[in-house]
Design a protein around this nucleic acid. Structure first.
Length: 153
DNA sequence: GCCAACGTTGGC
DNA sequence: GCCAACGTTGGC
């Protein structure tokens, strides 16, 4: 079982919305590295730290879980005029893939980026590496557990 | 809103 | 294949 961190701008898709809807396909990823993680490495049952980015208080705000065995083509790439349209992708030869995740829990108290940066044992997280912008990134088991316990003060 | 860091595109 | 220009991400 692997652990991941997925970023979302709360304006565009928040943990509250995931809680309400229960599940969501992680569409709109247009970065090859992030896609490859979803396509090759994410497995059903993997744990996902749900992170709010580009907001007043960036933070890990909850927990989700991968609920598809396999990634599926991201059809939003075929929607002409859509936000995620990519003319290079087609139903015959899809380029972009997505997994589905389901809501597990919303942390009563989010673990803020500030706190994460303050913890030496989390200094290896990709999230805090300078210039790291991956929206889907692997997290070690240890990092995952530290975040979880930090959320349960 | 600013801007550093990064990925992608396209001319050569 | 190089690299400048451009667009995007995301913290602040």
């Amino acid at each position: 079982m692997n652990c991941w961190l997925m970023k979302s701008e709360p304006e565009s898709f928040s943990i509250e919305r995931l809680e309400k809807e229960g599940k969501t396909f992680w569409d709109g990823v247009r970065n090859y590295q992030a896609r490859n993680f979803m396509m090759n490495d994410m497995k059903k049952g993997d744990k996902v730290l749900f992170y709010h980015s580009n907001t007043a208080e960036p933070a890990v705000v909850g927990l989700a879980e991968v609920c598809t065995e396999k990634s599926v083509p991201d059809h939003t790439a075929w929607e002409k005029g859509g936000k995620y349209y990519d003319p290079k992708s087609s139903p015959e030869r899809p380029i972009w893939f997505m997994t589905e995740i389901k809501f597990v829990e919303k942390f009563p108290i989010p673990v803020t980026l500030k706190e994460i940066k303050a913890m030496p044992e989390l200094s290896g997280m990709k999230l805090v590496q300078k210039g790291q912008r991956l929206s889907v990134q692997p997290v070690t088991k240890q990092e995952f557990n530290i975040i979880l316990s930090a959320a349960q003060h």
